[in-house]
């Protein structure tokens, strides 16, 4: 059971400047570092691991500084983006590698235990090149845990997986993090992975924290413009755009979010309506994995509406009747960060 704290941590890579970052991860808590490419997620992870020198700040594990220790003395279970499997070693000797290094007396039995736990026993004599992507991910995770770490650092471990394999591993990760009582720092750019595994989310942009809080707050609470865009919300309206006279429904939504700078209107909150009194012109229609997305122009505002069940069968230029559910709208603002140690 370990607790991780990052206190004003900062690091530089070339011209990129990370931090200062304040963050705390409790035992058994999965902290997801979320953000687009170049946001500083991997830099943060590598700084915590000791692969990058710190510009400022400290890394504490159970209250003791570890940022002055070399990586191999920090008690890490690190999984790099390419998984870092040893191609010249069979699965058994990949998983058993940290136990071999430590000279563990029960190394063979312990290795078998981890192989069994990750469903790898039947693959123990194969080489990594002979495994599927999902199997390789499991080897990397089993090896990281076999090291007996005090902190798990995983960098985009699910990026090469299909959805089904990813979900199986996500379940396993959730169970393990709780069972082992370890803090996990998990880097991803995928909101789906985030909501599936996170007990704490940190959204990064250009080396700075844009959101820091529990996933339910990320799912339902106020969002700043960057985070909202990153999560895929397309209808972001500043308060000044939501003139009550021009758009009474949205103005009602804004009144419901007192103090907000504007509104995030999920595409799902915009519905087709039977009321012909409120119509808008269709600007574009496109198909996505989540359904049809129809952009409509309503006066000065452009909405994107999503129709999952029934393709709308509308064309550009058609006029359609709309209804917006103000209760499904979310406040847009800057007061979205918080938390920290």
């Amino acid at each position: 059971m370990s607790r991780l704290e990052l206190v004003d941590l900062g690091a530089d890579v070339g011209g990129f400047r990370l931090g200062p970052i304040r963050l705390a991860a409790a035992p058994g808590e999965a902290t997801v570092l979320l953000g687009p490419s170049g946001a500083g997620k991997t830099t943060l992870l590598r700084a915590v691991a000791g692969f990058l020198p710190l510009r400022q700040g400290s890394v504490l594990l159970d209250g003791a500084r570890i940022d002055r220790l070399p990586p191999h003395r920090r008690g890490l279970g690190f999984v790099p983006p390419d998984l870092g499997l040893f191609g010249h070693r069979r699965v058994r000797r990949n998983v058993g590698y940290p136990l071999e290094l430590a000279g563990a007396p029960e190394a063979a039995a312990e290795t078998d235990r981890w192989l069994a736990r990750f469903g790898l026993s039947h693959l123990a004599e194969r080489y990594p090149a002979e495994l599927s992507s999902g199997e390789r991910q499991r080897v990397a995770m089993a090896r990281a845990l076999a090291a007996g770490p005090r902190l798990l650092l995983w960098d985009e471990p699910f990026s090469a997986l299909d959805v089904e394999s990813r979900d199986v591993l996500l379940r396993l990760v959730r169970e393990l993090v709780e069972a082992e009582g370890l803090p996990l720092l998990l880097v991803t750019h995928d909101p789906t992975v985030t909501f599936a595994v996170a007990s704490h989310v940190v959204v990064l942009e250009a080396g700075r924290v844009r959101f820091d809080g529990p996933p339910d707050r990320l799912a339902t609470g106020p969002l700043d413009r960057f985070t909202a865009r990153f999560l895929g919300y397309e209808n972001l309206f500043a308060a000044s755009e939501l003139d009550g006279a021009a758009d009474p429904v949205l103005a009602q939504g804004l009144r419901g979010a007192a103090g907000a700078e504007g509104l995030v209107v999920p595409a799902e909150a915009v519905r087709w309506s039977a009321d012909p009194g409120r119509t808008a012109s269709v600007a574009s229609v496109r198909w996505t994995a989540a359904g049809w997305v129809v952009a409509v122009r309503d006066g000065r505002l452009v909405f994107r509406a999503r129709a999952v069940a029934e393709p709308p069968g509308v064309r550009v230029g058609d006029r359609v009747a709309l209804a917006v559910d103000p209760a499904a709208c979310r406040p847009l603002g800057s007061a979205t960060t918080g938390g920290g140690p």
């Binding site: 691991a49 070399p70 990586p71 191999h72 279970g77 390419d82 998984l83 940290p98 290094l101 990281a144």
Partner: peptide, 23 residues
Amino acid sequence: ASPGALDAARSLGASPTEAFVTV
């Protein structure tokens, strides 16, 4: 060679020399 393999070895407890020799 996989750049991650060396980092993984180091994080798993290998000193720089051990990581070089074993990985």
